[in-house]
Simulated assay, not measured.
Amino acid sequence: MIVKMLHEKGLKSEHAYTAAFVSIGLSVASWCGSMKVEPSGMARADRWGIFVGEWAPTFFALGLALANYEEAHEPLHAVGE
Rank of each mutant, 00 (worst) to 15 (best):
F59G: 01
Y17W: 07
G53P: 02
M1K: 10
T18I: 02
I50N: 08
A43N: 01
I2S: 10
G49N: 07
A61S: 08
P39F: 04
L62G: 03
H7N: 11
K36A: 10
S23C: 07
H73N: 15
Y69I: 14
M1A: 10
F59D: 04
P57M: 02
A78V: 13
M5S: 14
G53H: 10
Y69L: 11
F59Y: 11
G53F: 06
S27L: 07
E54Q: 04
L64H: 13
V3R: 02
Y17P: 03
H15Q: 06
G10Q: 06
E81P: 11
A61W: 04
N68P: 10
F60Y: 01
L64D: 14
H73D: 13
I50P: 03
A20W: 03
E54D: 03
W55N: 03
H73E: 15
T58I: 07
E8G: 14
W48C: 09
F21K: 13
G41W: 03
L26C: 03
I2T: 11
G33F: 00
D46A: 14
H73M: 14
L76M: 15
E38S: 06
A29Y: 05
H77C: 11
E71S: 15
L26W: 02
P39Q: 06
A67R: 15
M42K: 08
F59K: 00
K4Q: 14
D46Y: 07
C32L: 10
S34H: 05
A72Y: 11
L11H: 09
W55I: 02
V37T: 00
M5L: 15
M35D: 08
A61M: 01
D46V: 12
L62F: 10
F60K: 02
S40V: 07
E54H: 01
G33N: 03
C32Y: 00
P39H: 09
F59P: 04
F60H: 00
A72C: 12
H7G: 06
I24K: 02
L66R: 02
A20M: 02
L64V: 13
P39E: 12
Y69S: 12
G10A: 08
V28I: 11
H73C: 14
A16S: 03
V79A: 01
A65H: 01
F51P: 03
F60D: 04
S30A: 12
S27M: 13
M35L: 08
S30C: 12
V28F: 04
D46S: 13
S34Y: 02
A16D: 08
A29S: 02
V79Y: 08
V3S: 05
G53C: 00
E81N: 15
E70I: 14
F21I: 13
K12F: 12
A16P: 05
F59R: 08
E14P: 08
A20V: 02
V28A: 10
A20I: 04
A43Q: 04
E74F: 10
T58H: 02
L6T: 05
L26V: 03
A43L: 09
A43T: 06
W48E: 07
S23P: 09
A29Q: 01
G10L: 09
V52F: 07
H77A: 15
R47S: 07
V79G: 06
Y69H: 09
G80N: 13
S13L: 11
L26M: 10
K4E: 15
A20H: 08
Y69A: 07
F51K: 05
V52Y: 05
